[in-house]
Design a protein around this nucleic acid. Structure first.
Lengths: 191, 191
DNA sequence: TTAGTATCGATACTTCAGGTAGCGAAACGC
DNA sequence: GCGTTTCGCTACCTGAAGTATCGATACTAA
């Protein structure tokens, strides 16, 4: 019995091999070992055990590969806190922990830098990576778009600046300080 | 009469031409027009009216050139406010305005990104660019190093993240919001 | 004026990474 | 087996960082 009928009609020819998970893992480990710039598509493909050309059959550019890899590494943002303070605090700790994972912060900072002088990549980064989390935060917090964008600028910008300047992810103490800095501004009441 | 005596004894041979100012201006305008990645050393040199080789006689790498250019563009941080609040507020507005100048933000974000995967450049960035301002802020504010570093992470990180994501410098409204976010944390009294 | 020295511009070159093209081999459904 | 598509492989193009060389030039000292 065909599940979903025509939608699953397999096209003729050799099927694509499911390499996404392997490539994502290879990307993070290669970036972690060699840094972003020296993690070439060639090396990533070799680490994944596939040919470079196969990588370019899946992702049009290195930037697109990295963004997809980050999307996979981040997953959905957990938003189960009771109340705005808990919600935002857990979101900050979540993204800080993700960026601290081996290779994730380097890949994030690296693709972010590339986007500075590549409008096409900036569009991918903004649309595919930032927008889903922005929208989820808007709905969960009931804040307007510009406030949520500012929130993301502060949190992610701070974490990436620390990572870029020191080469190490931000320590837990400072992440706590970051929450203490941000929360009052978004949850406190004006005098 | 020789001023400073032996210290000004000119070495033999053709003297170096003073091209720093011209190269800095050419760097910023080229980065502004073409973006960081497409602002090659070749193009910058051409815009400055000198040969590429002459550029490499002054600066060992593109990153070193950009850092020197930023140092020249920033200049010393103005710290003449009365009281910590005014001091920090004026510092935030100063760096925001500098980053908003044509080419400066792009160059800053670009070299920052390169530093992610280039430890030598990161060292240059940290030592030559960040440290002078960090030390000046430590003395002016009487804050410990880690607090000032955190302050820089938040302010510069936020400004660069906005620049990288949108391609535009942060608007004045949001810079004001940024000061309102940061100031209470550094000037307010704990309950 | 001449000799010596160091920089200049110009050209050519090397290296490396992103990305593309073309091929025969392999993996499917029929 | 046949048609189709993807696979790995190799070769290639482009562009940019950085290096090497060389004659021309600008200056000092004698």
């Amino acid at each position: 019995m065909a599940i979903l009928g025509a939608m699953t009609a397999r096209p003729p020819g050799r099927p694509r091999s499911g390499v996404h998970a392997v490539v994502f893992a290879a990307t993070l480990s290669t970036v972690h070992e060699l840094g972003y710039a020296r993690a070439t598509v060639d090396r990533i493909a070799a680490a994944a055990g596939i040919a470079k050309t196969t990588t370019y059959r899946r992702w049009p550019t290195k930037g697109a590969l990295i963004v997809d890899c980050l999307l996979d590494a981040f997953g959905p943002i957990p938003l189960e806190g009771a109340g705005r303070a808990e919600l935002m605090s857990s979101a900050i700790r979540w993204i800080a922990a993700k960026i601290a994972e081996p290779g994730v912060g380097d890949a994030f900072a690296g693709v972010f830098s590339d986007a500075v002088s590549d409008p096409a990549l900036r569009e991918i980064l903004s649309t595919r990576l930032q927008d889903p989390y922005r929208i989820a935060l808007q709905e969960a917090l009931g804040e307007p778009e510009n406030r949520v964008l500012f929130f993301i600028d502060v949190v992610v910008g701070t974490l990436l600046h620390r990572m870029g300047m020191t080469g190490e992810p931000m320590a837990d103490d400072d992440v706590t300080t970051l929450t203490e800095l941000v929360l009052p501004h978004f949850t406190g009441s004006p005098p």
